[in-house]
Simulated scan of single mutants.
Amino acid sequence: MKTILITGCSSGYGLETARHFHAQGWKVIATMRTPQEDVLPPSERLRVLALDVTQPASIAAAVEAAGPIDVLVNNAGLGLFGAFEATPMATVREIFETNTFGMMAMAQAVLPQFRARKAGLVVNVTSTVTLAPMPLVAAYTASKTAITGFTESLALELAPFNVQVKLVEPGYGPGTRFTANGAERMQGLVPEAYAPFAHSVFASLGNLSAVTTATDVAETVWRAVTDAGGTLRYPAGADAIALSQQK
């Protein structure tokens, strides 16, 4: 029985990915900043652990409590929508702490056991904003683009140890808590001068015929984990697949 550790499992992509792997017979370590036992079914193959990927002590405690794992899915992330001009640098740093440095820190925490066993896989969940530029998400895009470059380089670095690193790239997911989770952080980030443009961007998102669901992402993570080939990028969702083909 293989074991997978997934970050950011309180809702959205992480929660659905935990459910999917559990349904496939895996042992699942579902982590979240504030553990919620009731979001997942009771099972001997499922554990919920506290984890804040921005805190080294929290990472160390969670990895130790998890024990040996076969796969790490770096899913935890923060959203941000607003004019960059109005975005405090403290907020930009907050986004990078979770979306970029948190992913890097988690990878660094599990790599010693992967390298020692000459087996293991890190899956980094990014976004299709790295494939096609989108306005009003400059800081968020930068945090995800950094992980794309990090993953590409790390995959080459770890290949001699038979350790793999892959990217899952979800498209636009209106069913996630992207906006709700970041509502407080995003207050005041659309100044009056930007309001008409921001409204047009929101309107265009509302008219999209193809979007990404949590199920799309969970199934794509499953495909990335079970694919024995050398594929690096896995677009998730109909819109993501279309963007990837255009790219």
Rank of each mutant, 00 (worst) to 15 (best):
S10Q: 03
G12Y: 06
A18Q: 05
A18N: 11
A18E: 08
G25V: 15
V28G: 13
A30E: 01
P35T: 05
L40A: 09
L46R: 09
A50I: 04
V53S: 09
P56I: 02
I59E: 00
A65C: 04
A66E: 02
G77T: 12
G79T: 10
G79D: 00
F81S: 00
M89K: 03
T91M: 07
V92H: 08
E94R: 14
N99L: 03
T100S: 12
T100Q: 12
M103T: 15
A105L: 04
A105F: 11
M106I: 11
V110L: 07
R115N: 03
R117A: 15
L121I: 14
N124Y: 04
T126R: 01
S127W: 13
T128G: 08
T130F: 09
P133I: 06
A138E: 10
Y140G: 03
I147T: 08
G149K: 12
A155K: 13
L156T: 12
L156V: 13
L156S: 08
F161W: 13
V163T: 09
G171N: 04
R177V: 04
F178P: 04
A180V: 07
G188D: 02
A193K: 15
S200I: 12
G206T: 09
A210M: 12
T212Y: 06
T212V: 01
T213M: 05
D216G: 10
R223F: 01
V225G: 10
T226F: 08
A228R: 15
G230P: 00
G237D: 10
G237R: 08
D239R: 00
A240C: 07
